[in-house]
């Protein structure tokens, strides 16, 4: 099976190409049941009366207007009618409904996200990334000989046991194969 760094590098390139092709394919799929602003933004006439879904920053509350962007530089304000949720300027409004005019959406369902909420999500995701990265560094290592990632095992000569992580302390029979071993069970 793929063992040499070269064959594995080749496999990575192939996977990269496949991923790229998949993303091109996904991008070519038309709008689903609800068209996003990528579709109705540049071509409102084609979507008049159709179901749309979009998120935009609230710029006005009476009447409710949101700023929507699409593409690399497309942007417009949309009037949103029929809302039954309160909105505040600066929040993000996510709305699904019908395009009743070139720049008007009649809401069927909507919710808001506060600025605090967005910042919370970003911050906590960053922390999560750090946590998992720390675990990866602690539990895996890069073996330059095979140019591969292998799990760190608790060697017999090592005095370190991970007291905060129970499974590492389990008997060796549960631990993965010793480094370099090819135990394809």
């Amino acid at each position: 099976m793929l063992e040499s760094p070269r064959s594995r590098g080749g496999a990575l390139v192939l996977l990269g190409v496949a991923l790229f092709a998949l993303m091109v394919w996904y991008g070519s799929l038309g709008p689903g049941a609800y068209a996003s602003q990528e579709y109705f933004g540049p071509d409102p006439d084609a979507y008049l009366g159709e179901r749309v879904v979009v998120g935009g920053g609230v710029v006005d509350t009476d009447p409710v207007r949101i700023r929507v962007t699409w593409g690399t530089d497309g942007s417009a304000e949309y009037l949103v009618t029929g809302l039954d949720v309160p909105v505040e300027r600066g929040e993000l409004l996510r709305v699904a409904g019908r395009l009743t005019g070139p720049r008007t959406i009649h809401a069927e369902s909507a919710f808001t996200v506060t600025d605090v909420g967005s910042r919370y999500a970003f911050g906590i995701s960053f922390l999560a990334g750090l946590w998992v990265l720390a675990r990866i560094i602690r539990h895996w290592r890069f073996d330059p000989e095979t140019a591969a990632l292998i799990p760190r095992t608790r060697s017999r000569t090592s005095a370190t046991t991970d007291a905060s992580d129970p499974s590492v302390a389990t008997p060796d029979s549960d631990d993965p194969a010793p480094e370099g071993g090819d135990r394809d069970a």
Partner: peptide, 24 residues
């Protein structure tokens, strides 16, 4: 968006699989 679908995730898992030796 393809990355959050079954197809995209599967390819990414395969990338991870290639990064480790055959026994892993």
């Amino acid at each position: 968006g393809a990355l959050q679908t079954f197809g995209g995730a599967t390819l990414c898992v395969l990338v991870g699989v290639v990064l480790v030796p055959p026994g892993e």
